[in-house]
Computed example of a mutant assay.
Amino acid sequence: MYTPAGYDANPAARYPVLYLLHGGGEDETGWARQGKTDLILDNLIADKKAKPMLVVMLDGNMGGPGGLAGFGEATLKRFEDELKQTVLPVVESNYRVAAGATNRALAGLSMGGLQTLYAGLKNTDLFAALGVFSSGFFANNPQLSDPQYAFMKANAGTINTNLKQLWLSMGGPEDIAYANNKAMRAKMDELAIKYVYSEYPGGHTWPVWRHDLYLFAQGLF
């Protein structure tokens, strides 16, 4: 959990929250240690480039068989349920959180980006900004992707109205998720889903994701 400078000194203040998700094979320590979240946010806030916010770094590992368990529909649904039914209530009952969707953002890298897409697009009444770093619905897995695109088609107006920002980013053509994201963007264009796209060279690596957080955080709240 990241709290900005002044959180303890200003007990009347309430803050917006970014829920930030790691990738496959990692856990909640990824963004804290390798992601340097505290340093990025401290500097942005000190330079008045980002608003003071809380950052909740979750453990997105939902268990289940197989190394890619986190990428299946059933596991993604379990993540969505855990996020809505447990994580949000616990955070909002224990920290001084500003209320409402406009004060919540959800973002993640790789597997966490897929979780963001799945849970975020289905719950734009809860999150007004989504950040998807080095991820995208699989171009070669229509069993997972097709229902998500059907949902987007049926709810495009609501998604575009509710989301202040749908931010997609990739680590250049060398990013292992590049093809998936490119195919997803083409589908979103077809469905008239609004998004912003950013590309930064470096592949599927932490320097790229730290840069993503640096840019994404500046447009929040």
Rank of each mutant, 00 (worst) to 15 (best):
A5L: 10
Y95W: 10
I176R: 12
A217D: 06
S135W: 01
G108C: 03
M184D: 00
A156H: 08
A192N: 15
L126C: 10
P207T: 12
G136A: 05
M1T: 14
M62D: 02
D27A: 10
W206D: 02
Y95R: 10
I40G: 09
L18V: 11
L21H: 02
D146A: 15
D189I: 13
A183C: 09
A99N: 12
T3Q: 12
I176A: 10
L114A: 01
F133S: 12
T116H: 00
N155T: 09
D125Y: 02
L68T: 13
V196F: 02
V90A: 15
L21S: 05
F71I: 00
L54K: 06
I40A: 11
V208I: 12
G60P: 02
R33A: 14
D8V: 12
E190A: 14
N181Q: 15
M53I: 12
G171K: 02
S198R: 14
Y214Q: 14
T3A: 10
D8T: 14
A69W: 06
A12D: 14
W167C: 00
N140L: 12
G131W: 10
G108M: 01
Q143P: 01
A12R: 13
T116N: 02
R33L: 14
A32C: 09
G172S: 06
A217H: 03
P16V: 04
Y195H: 05
K122E: 00
N162H: 15
M57G: 00
E174A: 13
F138H: 07
Y15R: 04
D42Y: 06
F221P: 03
G66L: 12
T29P: 01
A150H: 06
A154W: 01
M53R: 03
S93W: 09
A99G: 08
L18Y: 04
K194L: 07
E73N: 11
R78Y: 09
A50R: 09
G219E: 03
F221H: 10
G202W: 01
R14C: 11
D8F: 13
A156P: 05
